[in-house]
């Protein structure tokens, strides 16, 4: 995977297209906690070779749209904006894909508390063995932040 500065994102992908990478693959966001990483893949149909490129966004979480280079990128950029709160500069279409507008924090950020994770009983909460002895040691599900799961006594440990 080739890492490029966010300022060169459009230029580098346009260079890929000029080099024969004629098919757009995908754009994905990754929440690295301290920053958001954006990954794009493009494919050269003549030999099926794939180019993976990534960039780390600055604190303003802004990346320039490549939809004018690869038209298919527009859908993924909408996803990036909706799920990771990334501002895609120059995107022609910023309608949300799945969620209603203003429905809370971007869903795929690690800092976002997912309602279903709080409301759904975690199957791993029970201890092995007798049900009567369950919950002797309360554990927390992987990816569930402290304080999300609160039992009737009000403690979460």
């Amino acid at each position: 995977m080739r890492r490029v500065p966010v300022s060169d994102w459009v230029t580098e992908l346009a260079a890929c297209q000029a080099a024969g990478f004629d098919c757009f693959g995908m754009i994905a966001g990754v929440d690295r906690v301290e920053s958001i990483e954006v990954i794009a893949s493009v494919v050269r149909s003549s030999d099926a070779s794939c180019e993976l490129m990534s960039t780390t966004l600055d604190a303003d979480r802004t990346v320039a749209s490549i939809a004018h280079v690869y038209t298919g990128a527009a859908w993924y950029e909408r996803e990036l904006a909706e799920m990771f709160g990334v501002l895609v500069a120059g995107a022609g279409d910023d309608r949300p894909l799945l969620r209603r507008t203003d429905e809370g924090a971007p869903t795929l950020l690690k800092s976002t508390i997912l309602g279903a994770r709080v409301l759904t009983p975690w199957p791993g909460d029970a201890d092995a063995g007798d049900d009567a002895k369950a919950n002797r040691r309360r554990q927390r599900a992987v990816g569930v932040a402290e304080g999300w799961l609160v039992d009737e006594s009000g403690s979460d440990d």
Partner: peptide, 12 residues
């Protein structure tokens, strides 16, 4: 019945 798989499953 060690429960490790249950607890590690990301989608429960």
């Amino acid at each position: 019945s060690c429960m490790i798989c249950v607890r590690e499953c990301p989608v429960w």
